[in-house]
Simulated scan of single mutants.
Amino acid sequence: MNALTRIREAARGRGLLMLLLTALCLAGMAEIGRGLYVPAKAMVAQVLLDRAFERSLTTRIPQKPWAWADMTPVARISAPRLGVTRVVLDSGSGQAMAFGPTLLPGGAAFGEPGTAVVAAHRDTHFSFLRYLRKGDVITVQTRDGLERRYRVIGSDVVRWDGYAVPELAAGERLELVTCWPFDAVRRGPWRYVLHAERI
């Protein structure tokens, strides 16, 4: 094998190695982008939802956050001790949860007797639930201007198929539901349920 042939083979090997490294870098950047997409979408959506909620408060008419939206903001919940505020959507669908917390059907409406149930993702909108503790206050303001305060009374971890919207209870209660454990990267059967009752 002459020197020219060895140089060509070495160059071909380096070229394949560079091609492989480039492909791995592109695949890694695609994964990073995919991982950032949902949190970025959630942050931008909350800005648009907050604006729509403010318009709803002013007009007393449900306002869509963007023209093609199939949901509208129904309330704003806050955890004052943590400085966290989230806009809650009126659609209980999984698609709506990509944009914000949703009021689940089957539960009470805010301000009505019974239990209002709000669900959201653990890695975006409800990541703060892990820091709420017994005695903390959660405030709710509806798009109709109704304001309520709830105190956290406890929490449970249940299987998704073992959770049901609580039966009609005396007074007003609030439950915030998200996947559990908080640090998991895959879906699982467990749900974290935070219980609060009206003050």
Rank of each mutant, 00 (worst) to 15 (best):
G83H: 04
V117W: 01
L129Q: 05
A96V: 07
G111V: 09
E54M: 10
D90I: 02
P80H: 02
G92W: 00
D90Q: 05
R76T: 06
G92D: 01
G100I: 13
L104V: 03
V74F: 12
P39M: 14
F126D: 04
R55N: 15
M71H: 07
P101Q: 08
A98M: 14
T72V: 15
V38D: 12
L104S: 01
A52F: 01
L129P: 06
A69L: 11
L48V: 04
T72H: 08
S127H: 07
Q46F: 08
S93P: 00
S127D: 12
P65H: 09
E54A: 13
V117Q: 03
D123G: 00
A52Q: 10
V38S: 14
A96H: 05
F110L: 07
A108W: 05
P65S: 15
L103M: 09
A109E: 13
D123H: 06
V88D: 01
M71W: 02
G100F: 10
P113F: 03
P80N: 07
V74L: 13
Y37K: 14
L49D: 11
P105K: 08
V118S: 05
A119D: 03
F110T: 08
H125F: 06
R60K: 15
L89K: 04
L82Q: 07
D50Q: 13
G111C: 05
R122H: 07
P62M: 11
P65Y: 06
A96Y: 04
I77M: 12
T85Q: 10
T85M: 10
G83Q: 05
A96T: 12
T58W: 13
E112V: 11
H121Q: 06
A108N: 10
D123Q: 10
